[in-house]
Design a protein around this nucleic acid. Sequence first.
DNA 1: TATTGTTATACTCTATAACTATA
DNA 2: TATAGTTATAGAGTATAACAATA
Lengths: 148, 148
Amino acid sequence: MHKNKENGLDMDILPALVGYHLRMAQLCAYRDFNARIGRATRTTPAQLAMLLLVEVNPGISQTNLGKAMSMDRASTMAVIDKLEKRNWLSRNKSLVDRRKHALQVLPQGRAILRKLRPGMLRHEASITARLDEREKQLLIDLLKRIQT
Amino acid sequence: MHKNKENGLDMDILPALVGYHLRMAQLCAYRDFNARIGRATRTTPAQLAMLLLVEVNPGISQTNLGKAMSMDRASTMAVIDKLEKRNWLSRNKSLVDRRKHALQVLPQGRAILRKLRPGMLRHEASITARLDEREKQLLIDLLKRIQT
DNA sequence: TATTGTTATACTCTATAACTATA
DNA sequence: TATAGTTATAGAGTATAACAATA
């Protein structure tokens, strides 16, 4: 028996599984992001993270960007398409390897990043409100070791 | 500058965000689940978790089940539909409140749970392979405090 | 031959709103 | 009035497979 205090249910082995708590925490973070930033700006965490990465790595290729986000090429495509359609970034043929696209943030994308950065930090502060600085760093270190 | 060792990219503020690492870890866990269990059995973590919860809480309603999984009613519906179609569980009108469905695991569902439980534990062991028991418990405790 | 970007396709999850039957 | 389940709809993420252009 593993009764949950709040709902009185038997949660079986779920409370002992990192996978379950990962899912719960991620759902929670996603909802907070949506409420603070996503719904108003029609953006997702992945879109914003990618835009951020293109800004600080101008000329990056889609494949490399996808690798940094642990996404395959087709999924990366879908995200980049959305950002391109909103004129937040541009695809430019690479001069050195014409298979590649060199991604560049456009002025509108730069403005969005400037505008949303404070919200991103408030979001981060919100989901980690119950952790002190040491615990937050500890959590990050432990999460980085979830790998196969 | 926050250069990533593996890919040489500047990751900007992402490495400092719990939200980013949550996403990375969850992606990793999801892929491991898929490789071990999901693809072969055409199940998802949420489906299996719900089936588990119905088994140990026979007669539970969809709304309560959804709450335990932090999902709304419509999303819960979609998952239950799939489990019902495969004859893994049944919906039965509640005798005490006829608005509710009392969910019950069927023999085939019970067999699936028996069959997949070892795989679930191997999956859990795999994603936490780089954590000792103390660190794993610590990670769970920290994840439970990601809330808004 | 291998890689990059692309297209097509499919499935799942999530969310919202509105409907019904019951309480 | 409120709740439980349902339906319809939409958007996003993920994955696979195959194709063209280029290396």
